[in-house]
Design a protein around this nucleic acid. Structure first.
Lengths: 161, 161
DNA sequence: TATTGTTATACTCTATAACTATA
DNA sequence: TATAGTTATAGAGTATAACAATA
């Protein structure tokens, strides 16, 4: 066991040296995601749930349909249904009818949903800062800026969550 | 449809402004991954297959067991078994017995595996460069450097592929 | 006819547990 | 007893297709 762990670290080192950006991104994303998901789980939801809650929290003034949310977050409408089912069962979201289109349903935060989102936002920000501790504040901003510039803004192929 | 697409872009814009690094990383990783996987698929394998092939290609002198590879790449030994099964079926890898431990098996590249890995390496590098086109060469190196520094080097929780 | 949302279904990825063969 | 690897299996996450209600 000791042996295979040492070997694993060697391979990891080589991967890091090899500057494969896909690998670096996946590894970095994975590390942050695990840390944040653990925190979200401790509060009875998940990182994916919080992403949906946050999208809803930002759009109190202009409510979006499930379809629009799905597009924005990079998931299929059937996946969106499943995500909202969970949130609704937890009492964090309710689906209200769209007055302008009776086919559509507008998911909105409940009071509990708004509270949990706000609380988790703070906690997850702290987790993020902790994960980014090796970087100075300036470097963190550089990282954000560089990432924004390489994110494809067009349509999304496949799921993003 | 037009409407929900427009709404989706608005939400995406808001997410980008919101500087959630987890979201930025996932989105960037997803874009690059899709592009690279499409290229790998065109050559009869996948990005995950190529990651395994590349790990093997870098260790011709010092062969690693399946377990060590799994640790390094962040997957369970059962997942490693499945990945290698596919590669072996495609004739890209063979599992050879470890002379020092008759329980263990050492996966090694076949000639076809070595060739495909080398060819795909070049092609995927081109895809990566294309995806990073918005960044200058200097900026790309900054990005790599920042990512390396926030990747947790300790043990990996859950799958990384 | 086209679209929103749901359900049923299937496929992939993942890990746990049970097993074997070694150590 | 413990470890390397396989198999069986179960749980997520995802997407396609068929459907109901509405546009």
């Amino acid at each position: 066991m000791e042996d295979s762990v040492k070997a694993a670290e060697e391979i990891t080192q080589q991967c890091l040296q090899h500057s494969d950006v896909n690998w670096l991104l996946n590894r970095a994303a994975h590390g942050l995601r695990e840390a944040m998901d653990a925190e979200a789980n401790a509060h009875g939801t998940s990182i994916r749930g919080q992403i949906v809650l946050s999208a809803l929290a930002q759009n109190l003034g202009r409510p979006y349909s499930q379809l629009a949310l799905g597009h924005a977050l990079g998931v299929d409408k059937t996946t969106m249904t499943a995500l909202l089912d969970k949130l609704e069962r937890s009492g964090l979201v309710v689906r209200t009818p769209d007055p302008h289109d009776r086919r559509a349903r507008i998911p909105v935060l409940t009071e509990a949903g708004r509270e949990l989102q706000a609380k988790l936002y703070v906690q997850l920000k702290a987790v993020e800062e902790h994960s980014l501790a090796p970087l100075s504040p300036d470097e963190r901003e550089v990282l954000r800026s560089l990432l924004r510039r390489i994110i494809p803004m067009q349509h999304i192929e496949g799921s993003c969550m």
